[in-house]
Amino acid sequence: MTVRRSRRKQEEPDLGILSSRTLFSLQRQLFETLAQQGHPGLRPRHGAVLAYLDEEGSRATDLATQSGQHKQVIGTLVDELVELGYVERQPDPADRRAKLIVPTEKGRDHMVKSDAILAAMEAEHAKAVGEEAYTAFKRVFKLVAERQTGGSALAE
């Protein structure tokens, strides 16, 4: 039975398989390109912080919520990114007890480059399948992702 299920999954992959294939392929291409552009020390796990980081800084609790990671995981990743020179901790002017995770010059360079790389990847996909189909795909995929995570993309 395992072979039949496996063969069926290959022919008609479910949402989990399609999502993971897309994520892992996207991460591989993104981080390989970033390494070529001067950011070789970053790993896909760092995306849990860097993908959600505001230029003005973000609280670790907000990064944890947005990325779906535990606060302890975010703390470890922030420690690694501080050591790599991508972020620094600064006092939050709105709450002296809290710290903001703020991108450094190197972190902002990464943010600009990763945005450009991802935009180019999306443009390639849109060209391959057609602008209209890609726009519809992203809209539907966003709705599914929001529904899956309990968000409300329907309100947008």
Score class of each variant (00 low, 15 high):
83 E>M: 04
120 A>D: 12
79 D>M: 01
70 H>A: 14
102 V>D: 04
40 P>I: 07
76 T>R: 12
113 K>T: 15
100 L>D: 06
90 Q>D: 08
86 Y>Q: 07
116 A>G: 08
109 D>E: 15
59 R>T: 08
86 Y>S: 02
72 Q>L: 14
37 Q>L: 15
111 M>W: 05
40 P>A: 07
47 G>Y: 06
54 D>H: 14
79 D>W: 00
100 L>H: 04
53 L>M: 07
103 P>K: 03
41 G>M: 04
99 K>C: 08
39 H>A: 01
105 E>G: 07
89 R>N: 12
48 A>D: 03
71 K>A: 13
69 Q>V: 10
97 R>I: 11
85 G>Y: 05
62 D>I: 13
75 G>Y: 00
56 E>W: 07
45 R>G: 09
89 R>S: 14
51 A>Y: 06
37 Q>H: 09
68 G>K: 05
94 A>K: 15
75 G>L: 00
70 H>V: 03
104 T>F: 01
44 P>C: 04
57 G>R: 09
77 L>K: 02
111 M>T: 09
112 V>L: 13
93 P>K: 02
61 T>E: 15
93 P>T: 04
101 I>M: 08
60 A>M: 11
50 L>M: 08
120 A>L: 04
117 I>C: 01
92 D>L: 08
112 V>R: 15
85 G>F: 02
91 P>Y: 02
116 A>C: 02
118 L>Q: 12
51 A>I: 08
121 M>G: 14
88 E>D: 12
95 D>Y: 06
67 S>G: 05
115 D>L: 13
125 H>N: 08
120 A>Y: 02
71 K>E: 14
39 H>V: 01
46 H>S: 04
70 H>Y: 08
113 K>I: 10
67 S>E: 04
100 L>R: 00
118 L>R: 09
